[in-house]
């Protein structure tokens, strides 16, 4: 039973809540409309139905106005995505042209030779082994991003493929729905999750597009790869060569896909790379 003095207070409190709550609800409701597809959705805080970051000024009684141009915006006026920062465009374009010739006269013929000489199942099996060897990179990157579930999935994949999959030759983990199609993590993405901006866009000789953040991340990936620290013969060199030869046909295919129908192949690759990496950080 509520004492009568509290009962008297209850009504004004409920009325006050009623007045304040619509403002909060509108803020939460309007959030999805402004959300860019692929952007991370704020999760509600524990014990609260309101997503984090949607708190508005408590005493604001004004009705939230819709975006001024939301209703009249035409497709061509839509802001789609900011372009990649490219202060070194002249230098990058030069390297891009050089790479194009390297791909055309060296790597594409090598890719054709590889696919001609090595049967596809063998190429896939070799690729699976190299993918398995990089598991520690993905596990540590997932953990550093606070993605425990993804780290567990990667650990599960490593265990299943190393044992049932005969050292990674067979991707046995694909038989398990939870271990299938796990998004790959690396240190470039980890830095992105930590809030490090991509920095200027770079085109590296032969290696191709990178952001400064991903270039540093690539160094961290190498450090986290176990064979880097194994001094048995030239194991590190051979695994790197083998991995690149095996991945070359796929890389050449990706390059062709990005440039074949482009009006400006340099910009097409730059924008595709930066959008892809932005998406990889967000997912």
């Amino acid at each position: 039973m509520i004492p009568s003095r509290f009962r008297r207070l209850l009504l004004p409190c409920v009325a006050l809540l009623y007045v304040l709550e619509p403002g909060l609800a509108e803020a939460a409701d309007s959030a999805p409309d402004n959300r860019v597809a692929g952007a991370r959705v704020a999760k509600p805080r524990r014990g609260s139905s309101r997503p984090f970051g949607t708190r508005t000024r408590r005493h604001s009684r004004k009705k939230a106005h819709p975006l001024p141009s939301a209703a009249v915006i035409t497709p061509e006026e839509e802001e789609i995505q900011p372009q990649a920062s490219d202060p070194l465009e002249r230098l990058n374009r030069g390297t891009f042209t050089f790479n194009h010739q390297v791909y055309r006269f060296l790597l594409k013929p090598l890719s054709r030779l590889t696919t001609f000489l090595v049967p596809e199942p063998v190429l896939d099996a070799v690729g699976n082994v190299f993918e398995n060897l990089k598991s520690p990179v993905r596990i540590s990157a997932s953990l550093l991003q606070g993605k425990g579930r993804r780290a567990a999935q990667e650990t599960g994949k490593l265990l299943v493929n190393s044992t049932v999959g005969l050292g990674g030759l067979w991707k046995a983990s694909d038989r398990f729905e939870r271990l299938k199609n796990v998004p790959e993590e690396d240190f470039g993405q980890t830095f992105g999750v930590w809030g490090v901006k991509p920095g200027p866009y770079l085109v590296l000789p032969v290696l191709g597009p990178r952001s400064v953040r991903d270039l540093v991340g690539m160094g961290a990936d190498v450090c986290a790869t176990p064979q880097t620290w194994v001094s048995a013969g030239n194991l590190n060199v051979w695994t790197t060569v083998g991995d690149n030869v095996q991945r070359n046909p796929e890389r050449m295919q990706t390059y062709d896909d990005a440039t074949k129908d482009a009006l400006d192949p340099y910009i097409a690759v730059r924008e595709a790379y930066s959008s892809y990496r932005t998406n990889a950080v967000a997912r």
Binding site: A37, G38, I80, Q81, Q83, L263, E271, A272, S275, Y276
Partner: peptide, 19 residues
Amino acid sequence: VVIEGVSMASNYRSQFDSI
């Protein structure tokens, strides 16, 4: 159509803008 985070419209807009 957005494939692996790469929007077709956005990618072509950057190219058209430059041209």
